[in-house]
Structures are given as C-alpha cells and as structure tokens.
Design a protein around this nucleic acid. Sequence first.
DNA 1: GTGGTCTAGACCACG
DNA 2: GTGGTCTAGACCACC
Lengths: 130, 130, 130, 130
Amino acid sequence: MIRIDVNNPKSIYEQVYDEFVKLIVAKVLKPDEKLPSVRELASIIRINPNTIQKSYKLLETNNYIYSVKGKGNFVNNNEELLVSYTNNIMDKIKENIILLKKMDMDNEKILSFINAILKGVDANVEGKRA
Amino acid sequence: MIRIDVNNPKSIYEQVYDEFVKLIVAKVLKPDEKLPSVRELASIIRINPNTIQKSYKLLETNNYIYSVKGKGNFVNNNEELLVSYTNNIMDKIKENIILLKKMDMDNEKILSFINAILKGVDANVEGKRA
Amino acid sequence: MIRIDVNNPKSIYEQVYDEFVKLIVAKVLKPDEKLPSVRELASIIRINPNTIQKSYKLLETNNYIYSVKGKGNFVNNNEELLVSYTNNIMDKIKENIILLKKMDMDNEKILSFINAILKGVDANVEGKRA
Amino acid sequence: MIRIDVNNPKSIYEQVYDEFVKLIVAKVLKPDEKLPSVRELASIIRINPNTIQKSYKLLETNNYIYSVKGKGNFVNNNEELLVSYTNNIMDKIKENIILLKKMDMDNEKILSFINAILKGVDANVEGKRA
DNA sequence: GTGGTCTAGACCACG
DNA sequence: GTGGTCTAGACCACC
C-alpha cells in the first residue's frame, strides 16, 4: 500500500505523508475509512513507530485525517482540501510548462506531448481493466 | 537576477543553484558568459560567500558551468544537458497529469486547462513586447 | 584506517575521499557497512568536521556511499563503479608505460620490472599470512 | 608542441611544466636545445606570459633547463634527473598494480593486460613509420 | 580580484 | 547522536 525508498533524499516521514495524501485525494482511501494503526504500519514497512506517528500527526494538522483516541486514525471528508490539492498540482504543471516555453518549445510540441501522456495513461487503464 | 527566499524550505545553496540552472537552460546566460564572482554575488544577495561557492561547485559538478581559477565561472555549452533537463520537466508534468487523472479529472478538462496556460503565457509575452 | 598528510599538495578532503575510495573498491569496507560518523572521524584525525562532511558528500555524489539522515553514511553496492575504477587504473598504467617506452625502455625491461612488482606483492601477502 | 586544456583542473603553469618535462625526458628536446622564448610561446598558445615564466622558473629550479640572460632557456643534460624521473614513473605503476591486486585481480590477468599495452604501442609506432 | 580550501562554532531536522 | 546547512573569517594559488 505504502512504498518507502530509503535512498530517496526525502525524509521518511514525508514520504509516508505524501503516499497517504495521494491515496486520500485519489479516493483509494475513502472518507471515514480507517488508516492502519501506527504500530501495524510501522512493523509492516519496517520503520520506527515514532516516524509513522509524525506522518499521521502531519496528516491530521493538514486536515487529511482525524484521530479518535483509542480507536485509530480516519480519513476526513474535506472537499476544500481536494480543491486546493488540485490547484496545487495545476500550479506545478503551469510552472513547468512556462519553463518549457522559456526553452523555446512551441505550443504545438507541448500539446502533442500532453496528448501522448493522456493516451498513454488511458491505454494503461484499459489494459488493466481487460 | 537571482532571488532567494529565506522562508523556502529548500536550502539557500540549492535555491541559488536552481535559479542559475533556469537562467542557463533558458539561455538568458549564454555559453561562455561569465557568472557574477562568488564574492560579488554573495554581497549582492547578502549571503555568505561559502554558500555561493557551494552552489557554483554544484553547478560545476553537474556540468552547467566551468570554473577557471583566478578568472571566474563561465557557462558551459552542453546540449545533452538541455535535453536531459527538458526530459526531466516533461517527466514532472507527466507525473502531475497522472495525479489529476487519478482524481478523476477528464482529458477534456485537462486539455482546456493546458490551453489556458499556453494562451496566458503567449499573452504575457505579447504584452511585454508591446 | 585513514591517513592524512598535511604536506601533501592534495587538499585534505580529497585525501580523505581517495582513502575511502580505496577502502571501498578493495572491499575492506563492505557494501552497507557504516562509515565512521562525520564528527567521530573528524576528532580522530584532528580535522574540522566540515572538511570530512565535504569528503563524504563527494563520495555520495560519486555513488560510493549513501547517506541516511540521523543514521550515518553507508557503503553502496555498485558494481559499475568497480569496473570504471579498474579501467581508470589500467588507463593510468598504460599512460605511464607509454612514457617509459618514449624514454626508450624496451619491452623486456618493462616486463621484468612488472614481474618484480608482482613477486614483491605476493611475497608480502605470504609473509603476512605466515 | 605544447597542448593546454583549459578545462583541465590542473593549473596552466603546471600543464606547461608537465608538457616540457615529458618532451625533455623523451629527448624530443635534446640537451642544450633552446626552448621557445617566453613571449613567443605565450603568444602561440594564447597564455599570459607571466604564466609561462612561472613554468620556466619551475623547470629551472628542478634542473630540467638552464637560463642564459639575454639568450633564452636551454635544456639541461642531467642524467640523474632522467633516472629519478624513470623511478618516479615506475613507482606510480607499482602503486597502481598494487591497487589492482587489492581488488583481487590475479597476476595472469595483469600480465596479459600489460602485454596488450606493449603490443598496442609497438603497433602504433610501426604504423607511423610505415 | 578570482576561485578554492579550511577552521571554528552554531543551529536545524531526523530517527 | 547523526547528517546537513550556514556564517564569519582567514589563507593560499592563480592570473
């Protein structure tokens, strides 16, 4: 479910955080669904429980999840968050496209590149369905 | 020329590095053009010379610039680097588009968003020309 | 383990780097083995920790080691690197042999000299074993 | 006659020095032969005369050449120097062979590699003669 | 004046 | 305790 790369320069707690955010915004983890317990996840991915705890804490302060004492951590239902996350991604794409333009790549080439990506992803999804 | 944000979680030397990479790939700084001297830049942006030195060293090890003792640092002419940089940007865009698709945004919406960006940038350029 | 010569024209951080590269390619330091901590090594060989840090950073960028924040620096398992290192040494030998030839030393003499070295080294190893 | 590489991290005056040493020990420049004048060489290889001067000075202090005021710089006839230079090269070869042994390369492989070099060089010389 | 190295000392993030 | 970054200040080699 969660993949950690020790070689990745990003800190482990951030990687865990990022992975969960992705799962939540992609609705793989649905609102009110329970996250694995800190200890459980820690033992599965062989990480210090303190580190997992830190990730969960961060998810909570950023409103991705809520915590119920004695019960566990659960996915929040927060539409605003989804919107801001989407905007965030779009901003990143925008920034990168601006870079490409600055390197003198023309609109045509950029669009054909984007179309290639979209086709690639769709094909991939079809393939998995079949 | 170079802007540093102290609040940015990225380290200063990395910010300086990134800024120069952008200037170099966008050919604002042309091959064999001289970069500001370590001390000069350091005093301009109020940063310790050692930190600038670190950025320049990184630019050098990554082949963006070459350094001549007693003379200064100069932009390298490295086409391969431009290609790999472009690929890098395109990979990032791809990743982000995949995220959007996972959040169930459809191709139509994504494309209209991209077109909006392209128009925006073109308009901006026209505006500056006029 | 590591020996530094202050009189050596090579910079200290390069000497430290070279020493570790030798230990790693000779498999004295095995893959995933931990290097001494920055501060520890610094205090042992009486060098500023920043200098050691610089050596370790260089080892990392050249893929000899990987660094884990809060844990330490560890030897990488990189076969390609061994091959390129070997080729590098062979190139140096080749260069020097060419120099000898240019000074009119004949093949016979060169070979007898090489054989002497090999015998010497083997004898040394035997001696240490016995 | 002399080739300088600006990208080479070695300082220019050292490169000039090294090149002349090679020419002298290989007897391409014979004893009492005149070296190009400082100004002449400087203008040919597009280097600051001060830098050439420094190289010549170093060649002189190391007894490779002698200088006659108002006449120029001339190659010394110094057999001892040749011997020590040869020994120096052989030491370097020895060091590198020891490294190969430490990386568990066996004598057989090393010798076959040396033979390949010798053959390669001889063939090259024959080729140029023909 | 230019880059490069080194020291001393400090602070932060990570596990 | 571990690596990583930054500052301040100094010295050297090069051109």
